[in-house]
Amino acid sequence: MNEILRVEGLSKTFRLSRKQQQIERTDRKEIVAVDNLSFTANKGEIFGLLGPNGAGKTTTLRMLATLIAPDKGDAFIDGCSIVSQPEQVRAKIGFLTSELKLEDFFTPNYLFDFFSQLYGIDPEVVAKRKAKLFERFGIDKFAEVKVANLSTGMKQKTSLVVSLVHDPEFVIFDEPTNGLDVLTARTVTDYLLELREQGKTIILSTHIFSLVERLCDRVGIIIDGQMTHCDTLQGICGGLSLEDRFFDIYKTKKGGLE
């Protein structure tokens, strides 16, 4: 197995504003979102980060995508450090999340070309790739419709396609099916499997057990910013269903469900 991602002691602390302190009903000035996280992912696998809301999954993925910088630790994607070589990392990865929006004013066609230019892709390659991806996701009929006028599902598909203009080897996907309608969700998960067949590596975060069972080769369970378990799906479950096993782990770690 080829190791493509190595995460070493990644930590991130956020300062709480007074308002946030009131909402969280705490006197703490800081909150540790990710606490000394280490794991690896291999080329050609789908790695899932599983955990409840607020466990630090999104923060971890945003650090890997170089949108935010870790306080401590580092991670290497295909040998490039997210701390010291963020631009090289950005060229290698495709980051997908519902947070990344597209400008309403432009059409999918324009946006595909625009982002392709930012990645410095040859126009001929762009044209071929665009035709293929637009057809695969059914965007071809809406290629000249402004994003503002697209349906929610079509917007999400366009957003996905635009994140993949450079055909990245490494895809980071935060909550792949969050907010998607059932049809779009299915299209997306099918496509992730397709990407794996092409030999791409995918790291995704989710709190949906069935999604992990259907897609992931290996799973890391994150609770309170710490990785409690990291293994293949079979290795973690040990005969139990993922859901039962997860709550066992959760109770052991937190001493109960509350």
């Binding site: 060229a91 990344l100 982002f115 930012l118 957003s159």
Partner: peptide
Amino acid sequence: RGTIATLLVTPL
């Protein structure tokens, strides 16, 4: 609108 984050994850 969150569109700047889309730009910031590119090698730009």
